Amino acid sequence: MLFAVRMTVNLPPDMDTDVRAATLAAEQEYAQRLQRSGEWLHLWRCAGQYANLSIFDVTDNDRLNDILWGLPLFPHMDITVTPLARHPSDIRVTKIAS
Rank of each mutant, 00 (worst) to 15 (best):
C46L: 11
A26R: 09
P12E: 09
T23Y: 00
A47W: 01
R45S: 12
D14A: 15
T94I: 11
A25Q: 12
A97L: 12
G70N: 06
E29V: 14
R92M: 13
D62I: 05
M7S: 12
E27F: 02
Y30E: 11
D62A: 15
R36K: 15
D78A: 15
Q49G: 01
T94W: 04
T80H: 10
I55D: 02
L71F: 14
N52G: 14
D66Q: 12
L64V: 08
D90L: 03
K95H: 09
L68H: 02
G38V: 09
R92V: 04
A85D: 09
D14K: 10
M77F: 02
A31G: 05
T23W: 00
E27A: 07
L68A: 07
Y50L: 11
Q49M: 09
Q32S: 09
T17D: 14
A47E: 09
I91V: 13
R86I: 10
G70V: 06
Q35W: 03
V58C: 06
D62C: 02
V81Q: 07
N10Y: 10
S54D: 12
V93K: 04
T80V: 14
V58I: 08
L73I: 11
I67P: 01
R63Y: 06
W44S: 08
F3W: 15
L64G: 10
I55H: 01
L68G: 04
D62Q: 11
W69F: 11
A26C: 05
Q35L: 04
F74T: 01
R36G: 14
T94M: 13
D66F: 08
R33Y: 05
H42T: 13
A85Q: 13
G70C: 06
L84Y: 06
L41T: 07
V9A: 09
N65T: 15
V58Q: 02
M15N: 05
V81P: 03
A26Q: 10
W69V: 14
V5M: 05
F3H: 13
D14W: 09
F74R: 15
L2C: 03
F74W: 05
I67E: 01
R6F: 04
A51Q: 05
Y30T: 13
V93T: 12
D14T: 14
D78K: 11
A97T: 11
S89F: 07
Q35G: 10
M1F: 11
L73G: 02
D16T: 02
R36M: 10
L41Y: 00
T8C: 03
Q35K: 14
D57E: 15
M1I: 08
N61C: 04
I55W: 00
N10V: 06
H42K: 11
E29I: 10
S98N: 11
A47F: 06
E39M: 12
A22G: 01
L73Q: 04
F56L: 09
F3C: 10
D16L: 02
L43C: 08
I96C: 04
W44Q: 05
F3M: 08
I96F: 08
A47L: 07
Q35D: 00
R45D: 06
G38P: 04
T8W: 00
L43H: 14
L11S: 00
E39R: 15
R63P: 01
G48C: 07
R33C: 04
H87I: 04
N52V: 12
V93W: 00
E27G: 01
R20S: 07
G38K: 06
L43R: 10
D90P: 02
